[in-house]
Design a protein around this nucleic acid. Structure first.
Lengths: 163, 163
DNA sequence: ACAGACATGTTATATTATAACACATGAAGC
DNA sequence: GCTTCATGTGTTATAATATAACATGTCTGT
């Protein structure tokens, strides 16, 4: 079985540390600032492999720094989105860390488990390729795509133990 | 050029009449009721080939029947969605009539023009096939998908005349 | 010091969606 | 006929998501 979702036993601390490190590097390369606020939000997004809502982030952030207002969170998410560090999951109005790598521009394609809530980003252009194939001759100029497949991940399909 | 988007000159009245007729037939076949309210909402959704927001529907509906509250609209949309008569465009929080045919269960795949706002539903065999192919060996059991490609339709890409 | 750019804070509000309960209507059984 | 039940609709209130507009702070280059 191909590992698509993060193994339930993986070293998540390292996983987050990696993501933050890469983000730091990327921001330096681009001459943009990964401020403490942005870093904190990115870390909260990476807190799990589940897409997280803006207001969940807001709640967590408030615990760390006292009252935070929605624009703070949305602006920060806008920055992270613009730099490819997170993706928005349209079907959930939620956000998840980019696990493909922000240096390659891409829209993100996701599998979302409706049981455990985890999301897995596909590093695979076959779906996008099929979309492009379907477009051929239509004159449509694609700009970005939203590809989100909901279902049950292998773990959840296998053992329906309590969430 | 394959006709993906409805031609700007097509007979839209006939287009809507068709959709309503098919809906009527389908509902009878299924033993569910296409009530006047549901018919009115479906007609409003089909009013254009642009995805339309729930509150836009609400406004229009209010003109026809006096004060209407949000739950009325959302419930009606839920019915139409459940019966495959409309699709939800996640990236726009909006709804559009199903032009593939509600008798075949499908999640819908859309092209959305960011210039003129129109949406075109793809007859998505190849896309669904690519999704399945990509998932092979992953153990993921897909249930439904959200595929929305934003870009410029042929008309808008060709002539940037005023919207 | 100052200007300018950028990041953040603050207040208010817009937009999208649902929960919970009330009432109406029509078919199924008695 | 009346009851009962399921279904559809109405109504009130509120939740959840998102943005506009403006104020303040903070760094950087000169």
């Amino acid at each position: 079985m191909k590992p698509v979702f993060a193994a339930k036993t993986h070293d998540h601390a390292a996983c987050v540390a990696d993501a933050l490190g890469e983000a730091e590097t990327l921001c330096q390369a681009r001459g943009v600032k990964l401020t403490p606020l942005r870093r904190a939000v990115l870390e909260l997004v990476w807190d799990s492999h589940r897409p997280v809502g803006a207001y969940d982030i807001l709640d967590q952030l408030s615990k760390q720094r006292g009252r935070v207002a929605p624009p703070t969170v949305y602006r920060t998410l806008d920055f992270l989105l613009a730099n490819g560090l997170v993706h928005r999951i349209e079907s959930l109005n939620a956000f998840v860390g980019c696990s493909v790598g922000p240096d390659v521009p891409h829209s993100g394609s996701f599998l979302i488990c409706t049981d455990c809530g985890r999301a897995a980003e596909l590093n695979d252009n076959r779906i996008a390729a099929a979309v492009n194939l379907t477009l051929q001759g239509s004159g449509f100029r694609p700009d970005r795509h939203t590809i989100e497949v909901a279902g049950r991940c292998a773990d959840c399909a296998a053992g329906p133990e309590a969430e």
